[in-house]
Nucleic acid binder design. Structure first.
Length: 607
DNA sequence: ATTAGGG
DNA sequence: CCCTAAT
């Protein structure tokens, strides 16, 4: 019945089979989480129908799991009848984490206890859905009411009709009860009396703790002996008045209040689903105090559940968050950081990687599935230290020949399609984009080419900032006084080649087309950039390369001229498309120009 | 929104 | 690269 779900996707987070995920089922004492059973994730509709979870939902589950760094979680709450999984602040430990008994979360607080988990599971009915983990106590409604706030994208609440609830029969609990002396069967009875439902858990220890918690309405299970009188816990052990004061237990046993206890969310919940509760609840946590903010609702809510987060809690939380933000998809790490999980369940983050290689982390607060994204800057994000490609370039001066070869090869091949292809892939797999992109960039960097031939003063000025390829949005104070952001991204050879290819295919002037089709992967190159670059190329191609040596040597090494083959090609295209700058046309170099022109002019047609 | 051209 | 003007 209880199910712990582990949704596991491939590394890219995609499910091989949409709609399915692995679910580990485990009863009380954590069975083997290693025994994956494939269940179909379903959503319980309001009318009780079970409908297959949509991909989105499945993903949602998965995402949460992944984001929480734990892929295991309980998909328990399905709807109203089913209790809330998380309630009060003790949630960090109470939440659905799954934690196998052996699960160790060393760092975990004492509250985390498999027993409880199982208890929760136990409470959960047989049905489960992709509703996420998120649910919070509803503050209103007094008694064991709670609300669930399934975090579905659509924001619809899941409901289930499968849960049967019965009220606890406290009357059966009277006199002194020493849990230690009870048999399993008796414990079962006591359990039922306490929680109003059956249990099949065989674990005595678990039962005892569970009951103790229920009776004391706390997580304290130190006491195992209780005295019940008139439906009231007189107490024994450490509980006592203090507990009553804290919890709602003794207040009104008849109504079933007692039921709440550590697991308030039991079956009795009326099923109000309020996503906003999540919000407020969350806020409370963050703010660390709801006393003022919450109104009447709060009153009903037992004080105990509103415990103020401790400093440490907050710290840990933020720590986790930051980790989360910075991290890449971490490989599945089981049973770690269970404690913080609950808090993390409140949010999930989605990462998008821009084509610039910038990582944009958006935090998607699960406001009841409203799916509101709150972009935020990753705190830890740090771009890689800039590579010193200048050094690399130093090697190139004399390697023109080699470069030319590469160029030819590239030109010959269809450097075009590949790019698009890769690009497409990149879009579909955002997570990896960054890495891949960086890789590409680095590769390109080897061919760093200079923007223009003539070496404009501007170019020089810009090139300076090695920050070209960096993701820093550098704001360059214009000499004229303007203060604008300027990314000067040096054109890489591959980009130039693509541009040339593009022009040859679509024609000069169709910049937007070229941009779309050939530069999809280079988001930072706008059609205008392409146009400008082409203009420069044109100029360059017809410009003289008199004593190339002189210029080259004189110019810094970083100014790697554009390989002749490319210029040649540019020239062809220019002539083909009658873009030949009149003045420059005549000044072309005899050798390269003549041969190239005469020969290619006519062939241009096939281009 | 896209182009072309000047700065 | 940015900006503007003209489409």
């Amino acid at each position: 019945m209880e199910t712990e779900v582990e949704v596991e996707g491939n590394d890219e987070g995609k499910f091989e089979e949409p709609g399915f995920g692995k679910i580990y089922s485990s009863l009380s004492s954590a069975k083997q989480l290693t025994d994956p059973v494939v269940y179909k994730l379903v959503r319980v509709e309001g009318d009780g129908r079970l409908v297959p979870a949509t991909d989105d939902e499945v993903m949602e589950v998965k995402d949460l799991l992944v984001d929480e760094k734990s892929e295991v979680c309980t998909v328990a709450d399905v709807g109203q009848p089913i209790g809330c999984i998380s309630n009060d602040r003790s949630s960090p430990g109470m939440l659905p984490q799954l934690e196998s008994s052996e699960g160790l979360s060393p760092s975990e607080n004492t509250e985390v206890d498999p027993d409880k988990l199982n208890a929760r599971l136990e409470e959960t009915g047989p049905s489960f859905a992709p509703s996420l983990i998120q649910s919070h106590m509803h503050q209103s409604g007094g008694v064991g009411e709670c609300s669930n706030a399934p975090v579905l994208t659509e924001g619809r609440a899941l409901t289930s009709t499968t849960v049967t609830t019965s009220k606890p029969d406290f009357s059966k609990l009277n006199g002194e009860i020493c849990l230690d002396n009870l048999s399993i069967k008796e414990l079962h009875e006591t359990f039922k009396a306490t929680f109003g439902r059956e249990t099949t858990v065989k674990d005595k220890q678990w039962l005892k703790r569970r009951i103790a918690m229920g009776l004391t309405n706390s997580c304290d299970v130190s006491a195992t002996t209780f005295i019940i009188k008139d439906n009231k816990l007189v107490n024994k052990g450490k509980e006592d008045g203090s507990d009553n004061g804290d919890g709602a237990l003794a207040n009104d046993p008849a109504t079933g209040t007692t039921m709440s206890g550590g697991q308030q969310g039991l079956p009795i919940s009326h099923g109000s689903q309020l996503e906003d509760q999540v919000v407020s609840d969350k806020r409370n946590r963050n703010i660390g105090d709801n006393s003022g903010s919450e109104d009447h609702h709060t009153e009903q809510r037992a004080a105990k559940r509103v415990r103020k987060p401790t400093k440490r809690y907050i710290e840990e939380l933020s720590e986790v968050e930051s980790k989360e933000a910075s991290g890449k998809l971490r490989p599945i790490v089981k049973n770690s950081l269970l404690g913080q999980m609950s808090s993390n369940f409140h949010t999930r983050s989605a990462r998008n990687v821009s084509l610039e290689g910038r990582t944009v982390v958006t935090r998607l607060d699960s406001l009841g599935g409203s799916g509101i994204q709150i972009p935020c800057v990753s705190r830890v994000r740090r771009s890689r230290p800039r590579k010193n490609f200048m050094a690399l370039l130093k090697f190139n001066p004399s390697s023109m020949g080699v470069t030319a070869e590469l160029v030819k090869k590239a030109l010959g091949a269809h450097s075009f399609l590949p790019d698009n292809y890769e690009n497409e892939r990149a879009q579909s797999a955002p997570v990896q984009v960054q890495h891949r992109f960086l890789g590409v960039a680095d590769e390109d960097r080897q061919f760093l080419s200079t923007g223009a031939v003539g070496g404009h003063h501007k170019v020089l000025k810009q090139v300076d900032s090695s920050g070209d390829s960096d993701d820093n949005v550098v704001t360059v104070p214009t000499s004229k006084g303007g203060i604008r952001r300027k990314h000067h991204r040096a054109w890489t050879l591959s980009e130039v080649m693509k541009l040339v290819e593009g022009v040859s295919r679509y024609g000069a002037g169709r910049w937007s087309e070229i941009k779309r089709l050939a530069f999809a992967s280079y988001s930072y190159r706008t059609s205008v950039d392409l146009k400008d670059k082409w203009r420069n190329l044109l100029k360059a191609s017809f410009a003289q390369i008199p004593s190339d040596k002189g210029i080259n040597s004189r110019k810094n090494a970083a100014t790697m001229p554009i390989p002749e083959p490319i210029l040649l090609r540019v020239r062809e295209l220019a002539e083909t498309q009658s873009q030949v700058p009149p003045n420059l046309s005549s000044s072309k170099v005899p050798g390269t120009g003549s041969s190239g022109n005469s020969v290619h002019e006519k062939q241009s047609g096939y281009l």
